[in-house]
Design a protein around this nucleic acid. Structure first.
Lengths: 128, 128
DNA sequence: AGGGGAGATTGACAATCGTCGATATAGGCA
DNA sequence: TGCCTATATCGACGATTGTCAATCTCCCCT
């Protein structure tokens, strides 16, 4: 956020401040925002975790695995990505609350967080 | 994509190619990908359109408008963004198929594309 | 015809992101 | 104990993104 302070983007509207009876458009005056900046930022963080083709493929592979569990080495080859890159993508999705990480011995198993994707979907289509 | 050609990431596994009876992990051999690279890329494009707090707020404002229609000037002020920036965000969402643009006179009215968000939500939680 | 205003486009710049190679950590096995 | 292997972390680099100021286009109104 390069401009955290409220910059007076285009207020003033010098002499026409009272266009009164017409106002064909531009009636923001919402009063309360429908989606607060903070909520929007938190939501965007989760959608950002989905905004990469390789991460979507990881989710797809994880969810279609026999036990819905996958370890890193299962992902590196089908995605044609290096191991550090896969680890990086997995970390992003764990931090977004989409994946769960469980270390068993040397291997790390990743699985879907049960309601996470559904909750995100509900955010998109609240009344469906 | 800097490496479009298949780089031999870590095949070989020199003498252990037939670990046969154990294979505790790392059994990619999926055969068919669950999500093809092309589909993943197209999906990611739509999620990218949602991966920004200001765009989420635009969607929220548009969908909560009286006629579910909004023009650019309605968005610039509540979001505290310049007009070109708002236009840019709107264009991204129109190209992602999330918003519909209709020019009436001098104003451009934006509205939700009816099934778009629902279809995306269905992609997230296919069996909910 | 000409002026004015709404919105789109362009160019630039800083910030973020995806990827990799190299290295670190840590658990299992001989 | 010491090596081997699976995963995480670090540092770097190019590509993409979000934002703005300036400009352009086009429609309405006088």
């Amino acid at each position: 956020m390069p401009t955290p302070v409220a910059t007076p983007t285009r207020q003033e509207t010098p002499a026409v401040s009272d266009q009164g009876s017409e106002a064909p458009c531009c009636v923001p005056a919402h009063g309360q925002e429908s989606l607060l900046a903070g909520e929007a930022e938190a939501l965007a963080l989760r959608f950002k975790a989905l905004a990469d083709p390789n991460r979507l493929r990881i989710l797809s592979i994880v969810s279609s695995s026999p036990e819905a569990e996958t370890c890193v080495c299962d992902l590196s080859e089908p995605l044609n990505l290096g191991q550090p890159t896969v680890s990086h993508h997995l970390k992003i999705m764990v931090e977004a609350g989409l994946l769960h990480r469980e270390k068993r011995g040397v291997w790390a198993y990743y699985s879907l967080v049960p309601g996470a994707l559904g909750a995100l979907a509900a955010t998109l289509a609240p009344k469906v």
